[in-house]
């Protein structure tokens, strides 16, 4: 964890660049996965892991760790990438994504992968999990924090709104949710499929502190996590406006890249763009 903001942001940017390459290599080799929603989440995860998460790659189950739950589990290549870059996983494991052997299944598995604390793959469940860990931390008088990343389409799931009420009721200032608001889901734009309306007003009316940011502006990402840590009256949500497929020109804002894998030629172009 880097405490110096300027240095932290410099290193987070480098981390994000490496993560994007890893994500493309994983989804290309596996001929499957969800690169669009990985790339929209990358910059946020890079800053969170580099600058805020108290974790130990040598002891993934260290009892004092902060928690990160990827509720939008289909973006797990992004989490594998950050865990590789942070030393929880080996870069050689890129070849294992979605394979029968190895530790990198298509969706998160806490039984398979060091650094992952909960399974996901059925949307809507992560915020409840984060609340449970946060309540436990409070019981233990521990400073541990629970972060959870949700997709925007995922907010259609009713459980999320149940859990929003729970976090607000128990004033869980150690819970920080992030909405990866890339505006696209499998069947089209979120607006077309089922509008979220005024998302900030909705979270706010549920008793959450809301922070709206550009989810690719490292300064804003850093500041939002720092602000969430300082806020002591309840849970905080960071509504991060992002671009699906961010960083790869032909993937950006294209709904088709929700679930697809790059061809050999596309991989070559993408890797050049990221270099």
């Amino acid at each position: 964890m880097i405490h110096n903001k300027r240095q932290g942001i410099i290193e987070s940017k480098e981390l994000a660049k490496s993560m994007r390459k890893d994500i493309l290599l994983m989804t290309h080799r596996a001929k499957g996965g969800h690169p669009g929603g990985c790339l929209s989440a990358t910059d946020i995860m890079a800053v969170l892991y580099k600058c805020f998460m108290r974790i130990d790659p040598q002891k993934p189950l260290w009892s004092g760790r902060d928690y990160f739950f990827l509720s939008k589990g289909h973006a797990v290549p992004a989490q594998y990438a950050v865990l590789m870059e942070m030393g929880f996983l080996d870069k050689e494991e890129i070849k294992d994504f979605r394979e029968i052997e190895g530790r990198l299944p298509a969706y998160p598995s806490c039984e398979s992968t060091p650094g992952i604390d909960m399974a996901s793959g059925s949307l809507g469940q992560g915020l409840s999990i984060a609340n449970g860990t946060a309540l436990a931390a409070k019981l233990n008088n521990s400073e541990q924090r629970a972060y959870v990343m949700l997709g925007d389409g995922e907010l259609h799931e009713g459980q999320v709104w149940e859990a929003m009420m729970t976090a607000a009721h128990y004033k869980l200032d150690n819970v920080c949710a992030i909405v990866d608001y890339n505006k696209l889901q499998l069947d089209g734009t979120v607006e077309e499929v089922k509008t979220l309306g005024d998302l900030t007003a909705k979270w706010s009316s549920f008793g959450w502190k809301t922070i709206e940011i550009d989810g690719h502006d490292f300064e804003q990402i850093y500041n939002s996590f720092a602000e969430a840590m300082q806020f002591k009256r309840g849970p905080t949500v960071i509504i991060a406006h992002t671009i699906k497929g961010k960083g790869v020109s032909f993937m950006e804002d294209e709904v088709g890249w929700h679930c697809a894998s790059p061809t050999d030629e596309q991989l070559e172009i993408a890797m050049k763009e990221l270099s």
């Binding site: 009892s63 928690y67 806490c110 604390d117 909960m118 809507g124 469940q125 992560g126 915020l127 409840s128 999990i129 984060a130 609340n131 449970g132 860990t133 946060a134 309540l135 436990a136 931390a137 233990n140 541990q144 629970a146 009713g158 459980q159 149940e162 859990a163 009420m165 729970t166």
Partner: peptide
């Protein structure tokens, strides 16, 4: 739904 998930979170934390 929430109560099951919250329970699972407690279990993550031991």
């Amino acid at each position: 739904s929430d109560i099951v998930g919250t329970g699972a979170g407690f279990a993550v934390a031991g």
